[in-house]
Design a protein around this nucleic acid. Structure first.
Length: 925
RNA sequence: GCCGGAGUGGCGGAAUUGGCAUACGCGAGGGAUUUAAAAUCCCUUGACCGGUAGGUCAUGCGGGUUCGAGUCCCGCCUCCGGCACCA
């Protein structure tokens, strides 16, 4: 018999699976569809980078493959697809510097990463493969964008509806237009006063232009002026992460300017409450739920109006602590606040202009990294505190953000840390209005918790929650304010000044305004281009010019509404767009009529229940953005009737990061693996012999600690690689890769091979008849492994299989049917080896759909159990008793034990604790 | 600063959730086989005292609850991840 030739075996079975379409999963309606329970296992699809796969990718993929294979063996139809999130910056940057079209680079990278993924023998249904860059894919990304563009959020029903419905309601005058241009949805309450106060206009009273504007400001996809990091030299807008602390671009170190640009936004804030509520119904790790809740950041408090002294204007502030209104000793407005000019007096104007110019040009990061040093400028103007009519100075300071609340605060330095720091820095009065609970003279300065109101007029003596409620009532009675809810969540900035992304299916028409393409005009393909560099400029005030701006022929196109010349939108969509809905396209990837057939989606995602995908595995780095964006899109699709589940992902599991050992010399310099070697169990520098210090860090090229999967597979095979990554530790823990440990699992697979197939030196251990001693172990193994797979505890499942094989070698023999069952248990983990052994055991077909071995409950228990015996809590011995022995029998056996008796000598037993099946503790004096 | 997670042998980790701490694997040491090596197999391996009996001490540190704590409670320390002037 030949030895374990993994190279041959793995090639053979991968070809077999591919040739026989073993893992193609038919949809309902397909001729070969068999009705079974559906199970949808999804991986976060990779970005096909030029560097290819790193060892972190196959960790999650192996876990989902084990689940997929196990689910097939336990009678499910398994949806297990793979694809590529292939739009993105690197391909475009490569195009800029090397003149290679991003599509070319992308296709090359996909080919490489797919080759790598296929080496692992994952059981994907490759017929469902998609890439977000496929025209037939992004056609539907554009279509979904148009759904957003053509929808608005109904504030009464809290759901998206077609914008045509809004127009209908406006035309029928069910909704009116307020003087500020806002839509008055609730005309019911208004009717009573409408006659005396003509606050509203009717739809027909508006000009065409006004009508467009009203609609455009209510769409789920709308355009707004948003401050962004504009880098003229790079000709693009940068993410915060791409801007250095010095306010320069990470790439090229060019200056970055904060500038307001007209950008596409998606109204995710409308869904804040539903995103918050529905997260209760999904099976996600609690920390991830918490992160999403914190990101949405709901808070309740009040909006309060402060009259501005000497003018008719007023300043609206949001506070979570209306109970501290009596302690407000100054006000702060954000530098971007529209009232700043009005508020600033002539004497203060020049100081203010300087301050605002500096503040506005700071990146968010800069504004935040200045630490605790508070800066600000007095406007020279005062507001009137509505509760006590005190004059309170109004300041401008950049610690208040325009993007949150009303962009203005009442500062209560006595009970807010930031206000306290600011007041200290500028010598502003600090008043106590809350008394901490407990002994009276505790330090109240900077106390931000709940307590009892003091120095607060009608609130005195009330607890903080009561005082909040009382104050809100009072404000509402006096028409000075009202209770309010706020979210940290902001609308999603959805446009990029780049080439390699989905073009917006939008034109700008002088007559009709912003117009969406018709469905039959999709896909709107990216126009071919040779030169991808964005227009660069030294002038900070140069207008942004996306790469598509160069396509002069392409830009001008007939307006879908009026047919006159209109200009195409030149921005493209962000990478998140394609990844928001890819799990839907997998279900029906070839459909040309819709993004996914509803019946097919209903089968795989279910109907009505909260969640869709049964299991979604990926890194925790996507905890907020991707998962939140995807949930948002899904809810919009749900509202518009395109999907029937409220949530996209029912169960989420986060794999941990695979880190790497890094070796540093005495100077702290990381020594690449190529210059390290192990001597006497210590890692030393190959040349100098210096003993190196080991630490665990992220894999990165710079540290020389990157592990390449190709090399490991070449040396040990894919099954070993899979097994090693699963054996390293719990899937959700971050853990260091250690190539030194790989041979351990390789040896296990070789032993499994020799057990069943033998090799030149040792015969197989197979016997025709089953081995009694092995049978019980096998049942326990089946129970343990099945259980561990369900709980995603793959490391302990593998340990159990190792113990089993070790025990069989001790026993010296295993029955044919027992070997078969063992191989089936091993199959989800090491499928190539298992298939080969399965065929050696005499089976012609693939084992992929063989039932997972069952177990007999009776085989899991023993007749006798060993109990640990403690005397006064200390381990003193062990006794064997019948499993069903009563307490008296057990105690008799325990006291008969010589060692135990010795420890009991001269003492009287005062208490006995018997834990059935586990231990006996005797307390003696 | 805030939020979240984690600290167990030389290393990765296990421990039925309050019940025999250190499963499984790596590494290390010794032995068998071999001309030799690789591979394979066997033994030892938390620390300390002692002899392989036996004992004492060990799950980041200090307290506590309990017959019993890696697990629960209180107070610290360290590391990792995320967010950050969010009113």
């Amino acid at each position: 018999m030949a030895g374990y030739d993994f190279t041959k075996i793995e090639a053979k079975w991968q070809a077999h699976w591919q040739d026989n379409q073993t893992f193609r999963q038919p949809n309902p309606g397909d001729a070969d569809f068999v009705e079974r329970d559906p199970y949808y296992v999804l991986d976060m699809f990779p970005y096909p980078s030029g560097a290819g796969l790193h060892v972190g990718h196959p960790e999650g993929y192996t876990a989902t493959d084990i689940i997929s294979r196990y689910k097939r063996m336990t009678g499910f139809n398994v949806m297990h697809p793979m694809g590529y999130d292939a739009f993105g910056l690197p391909a475009e940057q490569y195009a800029v510097t090397h003149g290679v079209h991003p599509r070319e680079t992308t296709e090359k990278n996909i080919a490489n990463i797919e080759r790598q993924i296929k080496m692992f023998g994952f059981s994907y249904d490759w017929s469902r493969r998609i890439s977000t860059t496929d025209v037939e894919y992004y056609r539907w990304t554009q279509w979904i964008f148009l759904q957003l563009f053509n929808s608005y959020f109904d504030p009464a029903e809290l759901k998206a509806k077609p914008i045509s419905h809004l127009v209908h309601e406006l035309e029928n005058e069910n909704y009116l237009i307020g003087m500020g241009g806002e839509i008055v949805f609730d005309t019911y309450g208004l009717e009573a006063i409408a006659e005396e106060v003509p606050l509203t206009r009717k739809w027909y009273e508006l000009s065409g232009e006004e009508q467009h504007e009203i609609l455009d400001t209510h769409r789920l996809a709308y355009r707004a002026e948003v401050p962004v990091n504009w880098c003229p030299q790079l000709g693009t807008v940068l993410a915060n992460e791409e801007v250095t602390n010095e306010g320069r671009s990470e790439r090229g170190n060019f200056p970055v300017y904060r500038r307001a640009l007209k950008q596409w936004m998606l109204r995710i804030t409308a869904y804040a409450e539903r995103l918050l509520d529905d997260i209760e119904d999904v099976d996600w790790p609690e920390p991830i739920k918490l992160m999403q809740r914190n990101w949405i950041g709901k808070s309740t408090g009040a909006e309060v109006e402060f009259a501005i002294d000497g003018t008719d204007e007023s300043l609206l502030v949001y506070t979570t602590r209306p109970d501290t209104l009596f302690g407000a000793t100054y006000m702060v407005v954000a530098p971007e606040h529209p009232l700043v000019d009005t508020l600033t007096t002539a004497e203060q104007k020049s100081a203010m202009d300087t301050y605002i110019a500096a503040a506005v040009n700071k990146s968010d990061l800069e504004r935040q990294t200045e630490g605790k040093d508070k800066t600000g400028v007095f406007t020279g103007c005062y507001a009137i505190n509505p509760v006590n009519n005190e004059k309170t100075p109004i300041w401008v300071a950049d610690y208040v953000m325009m993007g949150y609340g009303t962009g203005a605060i009442m500062a209560v330095p006595g009970h807010d840390t930031r206000d306290f720091e600011f007041a200290t820095a500028f010598d502003l009065p600090i008043l106590q209005v809350v008394q901490p609970d407990g002994d009276g003279d505790g330090d109240w300065q900077g106390f931000v918790g709940n307590g009892t109101s003091v120095n607060s007029g009608f609130l005195d003596g009330m607890t903080t929650p009561d005082a909040k409620a009382k104050m809100i009532d009072w404000l509402e009675d006096q028409s000075l304010g009202h209770g309010a809810t706020n979210y940290k969540l902001r609308d999603w900035l959805f446009s990029r000044q780049r080439y390699w992304g989905e073009p917006f299916p939008i034109v700008h028409c002088d007559e009709c305004g912003t117009v969406g393409l018709n469905d039959d005009q999709l896909p709107l393909e990216l126009p071919p281009m040779d030169d991808f560099s964005p227009a660069s400029s030294d002038d900070p005030d140069s207008p942004p010019r996306p790469p598509l701006g160069k396509m002069t022929d392409w830009i001008t196109t007939p307006c879908p509404l009026c047919g006159k010349d209109s200009r195409r939108e030149l921005n493209t969509m962000p990478q998140w767009a394609g990844s928001c809905w890819y799990f839907l396209r997998y279900l029906d990837p070839k459909n040309t009529e819709s993004f996914c057939d509803a019946k097919i989606a209903d089968y795989w995602l279910g109907e009505g229940k909260s969640g869709g995908v049964d299991l979604y595995v990926g890194g925790a780095e996507h905890a907020v953005l991707h998962l939140l964006y995807s949930r948002f899109w899904h809810k919009v699709l749900f509202d518009l009737g395109h999907v029937n589940t409220v949530e996209p992902f029912y169960k989420l599991y986060n794999q941990g990061m695979i880190t790497s050992f890094t070796y540093r010399d005495s100077r702290g310099i990381a020594i690449p693996y190529t210059h390290c070697e192990s001597r006497d169990g210590k890692m030393v520098h190959t040349e100098t012999g210096e003993v190196l210090v080991e630490s665990v860090e992220k894999m990165s090229k710079g540290l020389g600690n990157v592990v390449n999967p190709d090399e490991i597979i070449g040396e040990f095979g894919a099954d070993t690689f899979r097994l090693y990554e699963m054996f390293m530790g719990p899937l959700n823990a971050s853990k260091p890769w250690n190539t030194r440990d790989v041979p351990g699992v390789f040896r296990f697979l070789q032993r499994a091979w020799r057990m069943v197939a033998g090799d030149e030196n040792s015969p197989a251990l197979l016997t025709e008849a089953d081995q009694d001693d092995v049978e019980k172990l096998l049942h326990r193994l089946a129970a343990k492994v099945g259980d561990d797979i369900e709980q995603m505890k793959f490391n302990t499942a593998i340990a159990a299989m190792m113990e089993f094989v070790n025990a069989v070698f001790k026993n010296g023999a295993i029955g044919q049917s027992q070997a078969e069952r063992f191989v089936l248990i091993l199959a989800p983990f090491a499928p190539h080896l298992a298939e080969e052994l399965w065929s050696i055991l005499g089976h012609g077909e693939s084992m992929a759909y063989e039932p997972f071995p069952s177990f007999d409950e009776a085989m899991l228990t023993d007749d006798t159990v060993e109990l640990a015996v403690q005397v006064c809590g200390k381990m003193r011995g062990k006794v064997s008793v019948a499993a069903d022995a009563d307490e008296a029998t057990i105690l008799a056996a325990v006291q008969a034990d010589a060692k135990v008796a010795a420890h009991l000598e001269g003492k009287a037993i005062v208490k006995t604790i018997v834990v059935p099946g586990r231990l006996v503790n005797l307390i003696a004096k």
